[in-house]
């Protein structure tokens, strides 16, 4: 790896995370099926489908739920190309690598065996690998749909409806905000370091540089938290948080919730072994 490798790849990772978040905000603003539903319905409904995916024991039911997820994506103007690059290929690669040896390692009825009999593919192993990949693909697609169609603040407000303590919701909101600030700060520190670096850095220097960058970021973070605390206190913060909730359920939302729950229960019922 070149001297700039670690810097460049960290910069790339930070930029990619920030740009993903921006794309989510754009998609969430477009009109679509999921976007039209109350965020609480979206959170509860998509969570119910994810749970149904993990509860179902049949590959066919998991694949059917995957089809439902793709349909929801199309109706919510989430392009399949975006899902393919952000979810499907990534999951296929990572879970595929994990699931592949299971085809050979799972004991069961052999379908194909190598001449010596040392390597054999079992029906059980193949079924386990397909089930695992289908499950992970479907669950991650559903979670990504929620993330893409719901602004973070709405997800948080929806969590309040499920009686998550207000302090936790407030911390999630603030953390999200400071991830962008600290992410940008880290990017700038890396950029300035990169612009001052001539030639190659050896690995030890790269490590030292990374640890020091992290150290400066840590000091800045704690300093920032003190400033934020003083600012909050001066505005009357006494430790208890109030989150406004302007959501109102309409008949359309109840219909959506019923459809989600019905699909989830049906999947679990049909998918039981």
């Amino acid at each position: 790896m070149s001297g700039r490798g670690a810097i460049a790849s960290t910069l790339l990772g930070l930029t990619r995370a920030l740009s993903h978040a921006l794309v989510s905000e754009q998609v969430a603003r477009q009109p679509g099926l999921l976007q039209a539903l109350d965020p609480r319905v979206r959170v509860a409904g998509l969570f119910a489908l994810v749970l149904a995916v993990t509860l179902s024991h049949r590959i066919s039911v998991v694949v059917a739920l995957f089809a439902v997820a793709v349909l929801l994506a199309l109706l919510s103007r989430v392009s399949p190309a975006m899902l393919a690059t952000r979810v499907w290929l990534v999951v296929l690669f990572f879970t595929g690598v994990i699931a592949l040896p299971a085809i050979f390692l799972t004991p069961g009825d052999p379908i194909v065996a190598s001449p010596g009999g040392t390597l054999r593919i079992t029906a059980q192993g193949l079924a386990a690998a397909i089930l695992l990949i289908a499950r992970v693909e479907t669950a991650v697609t559903l979670t990504t749909l929620l993330v893409l169609t719901t602004p973070w603040m709405h997800i948080l407000k929806a969590l309040r409806a499920f009686h998550i303590p207000q302090e936790i919701v407030l911390m999630l909101a603030m953390t999200h905000r400071y991830i962008f600030l600290l992410g940008e700060t880290a990017s700038q520190m890396y950029e300035s370091r990169q612009s001052r670096t001539v030639g190659l850095l050896d690995r030890t220097s790269q490590r030292r540089m990374t640890a020091r960058t992290a150290g400066v970021l840590l000091s800045k973070s704690v300093e920032l938290s003190n400033e934020v605390f003083v600012a909050m206190q001066s505005r009357g913060f006494r430790g208890d948080a109030k989150v406004l909730s302007e959501f109102r359920m309409r008949s359309w939302d109840y219909l959506g919730l019923a459809a989600f729950l019905l699909a989830g229960v049906a999947a679990v019922w049909i998918g039981r072994s």
């Binding site: 999200h176 905000r177 992410g183 970021l217 973070s221 920032l224």
Partner: peptide, 16 residues
């Protein structure tokens, strides 16, 4: 909150 954000960003650091 700020420390959680710091940990999040730290997880993205690529360490040789």
């Amino acid at each position: 909150s700020v420390f959680a954000a710091f940990s999040f960003v730290l997880m993205m650091f690529n360490l040789p």
